[in-house]
Simulated assay, not measured.
Amino acid sequence: MSDSNTTDFTNPSTFILLGIPGLETVHVWISIPFCTMYAIAILGNFTILFIVKMEPSLHRPMYYFLCMLAVTDLVLSTAAVPKMLSNFWFNSREIDFSACLTQMYFTLSLSVTQSGIFMAMALDRYVAICDPLRHSSILTNPVVAKIGLAVVLRSAMVVLPFPLLARQWPYCRTNIIPEPYCAHIAVVKLACADTRVSSYYGLFVLFCVMGLDVIFIALSYTQILRAIFRLPTKDARLKTLGTCGSHLSVSLAFYIPGLLSSLMYRFGQNVAVHFHVLIANMCILLPPMLNPIIYGVRTKQIRDRLLRLFTHKGA
């Protein structure tokens, strides 16, 4: 590695991605589950998109939001995982400075997009269960499209300050990033400047944007549960609750790893670096893989359409 990695320089043309520090000797073995999870994410989310497109009975708000989530998952995982795998397989560690900031922007903005889609899904479930007679008149196709556009625009605008700030800072210590992709916090730590503005803004996004999404989802499900327990029979309660199970499961799969990663970066100084990195990577790998599996297994309409597809091919 050149001396410029450890001596004075400003705004390097490239960064060096170490992969998973301390586990370099087993990168090839680590790549196997990473590649498997990425392949499942790609196959699963394309399958969801295909099934919803081909099945007219699924042309409803819940499944339109699911398609938005599938597209987001595909772009999010593709923004980071191929570079991780090229690092693990071919020792391709260099990434252009601008490409690094672009990758950082997309991974952050798409994560915020996911959170917004979960909030939109909670709204859909709330209206469907608490005001079912007006569901089709409230969540019309134009309204769903506007919600989707608002979620994307919010994410794009909220995350934009992160790469703009990172581009302005000098980098005079090192250009080595102890991650397999350009994670925001890892890049910030390399800057030779006061980065408190970015840290404070990161907390604002975490608590005042994604945190508000969580509060809205929690309030929606509080009202949903109240409506469910007012239903007359146990079977009706279980059936209605089952329609919400998939959404709750994918929401937990998204928020729990993200919360763990954020807390560890800020308060887990005694936690091994490679464990930090692995948890952060799970935020990129787990939700895109689990979302289509959970919806495919728990949603009867998708499961039945998938079985008909394979049965037809088998015949």
Rank of each mutant, 00 (worst) to 15 (best):
S2N: 10
S4I: 10
T6V: 15
D8V: 09
S13E: 08
T14W: 03
I20D: 05
A39Y: 03
L43N: 13
F46E: 05
M54R: 14
S57D: 06
Y63S: 04
Y64M: 12
A70R: 05
D73P: 04
V75H: 02
M84E: 02
M84V: 15
S92Q: 13
E94L: 12
I95Q: 09
A99M: 14
T102S: 15
Y105A: 03
Y105M: 01
S109Y: 12
G116P: 03
I117F: 08
F118G: 05
M119I: 00
M121E: 07
A128Q: 01
R134K: 14
I138D: 00
A145D: 07
I147N: 00
I147A: 03
R154F: 10
L160Q: 12
P161H: 10
L165Y: 14
A166F: 02
R167E: 02
Y171L: 06
Y171M: 09
I177Y: 09
A183F: 10
A186S: 15
K189H: 11
A191S: 07
C192H: 15
D194K: 15
Y200V: 08
L212Q: 07
V214M: 06
I217N: 01
I217L: 02
L219S: 12
T222K: 14
Q223H: 11
L225W: 05
R226M: 01
P232D: 14
P232E: 10
D235L: 11
S246M: 14
S246G: 06
A253I: 07
A253Q: 14
S261Q: 09
S261K: 04
S261D: 09
L263C: 07
L263Q: 11
Y265T: 02
R266G: 05
N270P: 00
V271M: 14
A272Q: 13
V273A: 06
V273F: 05
V297F: 08
K300H: 06
R303M: 04
L309M: 15
K313P: 11
